[in-house]
């Protein structure tokens, strides 16, 4: 059996395409920041398509997208205070670039500690709303100056966000750099955004590169909520899925844009899948979950897990943190 096994795996090879991609790594500078390794890579290839994507947005902006998204996710109308907070975190931009007859403009940017929602307006494309549901840029890079010290990699995804009355397609870019606790994206900075070739599914619609530069002013995020005690939640072991041990998280911190958790036992993250059924319960009964997360290690050995809320949250309206059916009251 051993020989048969060896003969069989002797015929399993990495594809030529993978090999070429790996060999091409040598063309990158080793310290290149815009590559997307580790867990954040998963975000980079995730293209989320919302239900009801072809929204008629007129000249709507990012607050309308959040309001629409909140209604779809929770079944509730977004609170006016929450919209006010989103406005506070959002900066109108208006900078753009034209390539091959297509103009891409950064409409606005909404900021979190370690997430940027960037609303893009794409004018000059000849596509229908049906086609647009699978649209995104084939490549994306961003440099931020001054760059947060701990930032070494990032993830991103694109989401179609409707059409404006002038026919321009709106696309939401979520930018998720892997930052440690000391760094945030809230400081004033200059941003250079590079977008490469616009594609619909497998088809390239417009080849080219759009380079857009803009500045972000300092933003203030409302104070976060913290849990005084540790919490225990069931996790799925990587080796024996039939058993569900509980894992402990400390220093639970909820910001308007993220959930931060610290593994009580860093070793556990090698043994279980990071528990991912987190949501926030609002006072009006609305419940909003996260849209993914990343993990990183701190120099002192602590292991941190960060999840991003789908929409910025007004923390004064939050009732509890939930994990599946488990409820952890706040306030």
């Amino acid at each position: 059996m051993e020989r048969k096994y060896r003969d069989m795996f002797g015929e399993v090879h990495a594809s030529d395409r993978l090999k070429q991609e790996v060999l091409n790594m040598t063309k990158q500078r080793r310290s290149q920041r815009r590559h997307i390794p580790l867990a954040a890579l998963i975000a980079a290839v995730l293209v989320v398509v919302l239900a009801g994507t072809a929204l008629a947005m007129a000249n709507a902006g990012i607050r309308d997208w959040f309001a629409q998204h909140w209604r779809e996710e929770t079944g509730h109308v977004i609170h006016v205070d929450q919209l006010g907070m989103i406005d506070q975190l959002t900066q109108e931009i208006g900078a753009g670039d034209t390539c091959n007859g297509v103009t891409v403009t950064v409409d606005s940017v909404t900021r979190g500690e370690s997430i940027l929602w960037i609303l893009l307006e794409i004018d000059g494309l000849e596509i229908t709303p049906e086609e647009a549901s699978g649209s995104f840029f084939a490549d994306m890079g961003m440099s931020i100056t001054p760059q947060p010290e701990s930032m070494e990699s990032f993830g991103y995804d694109f989401e179609e966000a409707g059409f404006r009355e002038n026919g321009a397609l709106m696309v939401l870019l979520r930018y998720l750099p892997l930052l440690t606790e000391e760094d945030t994206l809230l400081d004033a900075c200059n941003v250079e955004l590079r977008l490469g070739s616009f594609t619909l599914g497998e088809r390239t619609v417009v080849e080219g590169t759009w380079n857009i530069s803009f500045s972000l002013e300092k933003a203030d995020l409302p104070e976060s909520l913290t849990l005084e005690n540790s919490i225990w939640v069931p996790a799925l072991p990587l080796d024996t899925p039939e058993e569900r041990p509980e894992v402990e998280f400390r220093d639970v911190r909820i910001t308007p844009t993220e959930l931060h958790l610290v593994w009580a036992d860093p070793e556990m993250r090698e043994k279980v899948m990071a528990p991912g059924y987190w949501s926030l319960l609002m006072k009006d009964g609305a419940e909003i979950s996260h849209c993914g997360g990343v993990g990183y290690d701190l120099p002192d050995g602590r292991a941190v897990k960060v999840y991003y809320w789908k929409v910025p949250i007004d923390l004064t309206q939050v009732e509890a943190l939930k994990f599946g059916e488990l409820v952890f009251p706040l306030h």
Partner: peptide, 8 residues
């Protein structure tokens, strides 16, 4: 392990 553990 890292990829398995990622909700994305």
């Amino acid at each position: 392990k890292r990829i398995s553990a990622n909700p994305w």
